[in-house]
Amino acid sequence: MKKAIHYINQFFGQIGGEDKADFEPEIREGAVGPGLLLNNLLSPEAEVSHTIICGDNFMGSNKEEAITRILNYLADKEFDVFIAGPAFMAGRYGVACGEICKAVKGRFNVPVITSMYVENPGVEMFRKEIYIFPGGNGAVTMRIDVPKMATFAKKILSGETISSAENEGYLPRSIRLEAFKEDAVSGADRAVNMLLKKINGEEFKTEMPMPVIDRVPIATPVKDLSQATIALVNSGGIVPLGNPDRIQSASATKWGKYNITDLDRLQAGEWETIHAGFDPSAANSDPNCIVPLDALKSFENEGKIGRVHEYVYSTVGTGTTQAEASRMGAEIAQQLREANVSAVILTST
């Protein structure tokens, strides 16, 4: 029977939530959590022989070490395919799945497969190098996302030829596959047909889609810091105690602005984080570790900068869609422009 090794994070590995996100990588025999479903679906052709569990923060903050340790665990194992996730909309988990799949593929040259929501940052980072199946944005789609990976894994293991992203369902890897069209209409005919459809205002489907590049223009540098007004913005959910604007702890659609004119630092007990994506104890005992008001104020007092802007802007960046994040960013930027703020330090968590 062929063997699959499965990678999951501390949450799906049933170690714990955010408080266990520093969990160091570990290998276990057999399937764990979503691996049980994967194992059933792979059967009888293959089985999940081992599971790697690693905390998302451990992978995020100690990437080299995490990868080295995991590759060492795998060095003496025989396996035919490596499967990670699904990671859904969880950004750190998605990136971790991408990192480990890429490393395993590079070292052992076995097929690697993962699954995540299309907006997961891991997609843009890794889709060209590994098979990523588009998944749902939450664990409710587990029973849809795992079968997609399992079906594809079985196809690879059986030695079948893998065809295009469109046919197989994985996200395009920007690799052009040379193939004969089944309907045998020549390229010239197809091109003219497309042109005619375009002229007639009908829908047509290009055979050569262009990548959409969403770059942000680089802001011009601040000319004179000593005259500049610097604002603090954060996606770490730092708000006055009690969260007066009721900003959501995850999948935020709201942001808040809070007056800090008379403050030299954010006091514990007066400010807190409402971010549900990490252990809040450090930020609650010293909110300046996310919003560095104390440091920025000291640069104001030293004359390095002109002044600190009178409001701090906060939202929560976990499970937040790119569409909502873009809208909130534009709204905050508009206010900062109207207030003649010169530049912004944005801390993300």
Partner: peptide, 23 residues
């Protein structure tokens, strides 16, 4: 990730729960 989503000036911090000060 910061680079992937289009940030142009990036300064590394030390962790997710406490970007600027290890308790």
């Amino acid at each position: 990730i910061a680079k992937t989503v289009g940030s142009n000036r990036i300064v590394p911090t030390i962790s997710i729960p406490y970007p600027l000060g290890d308790p």
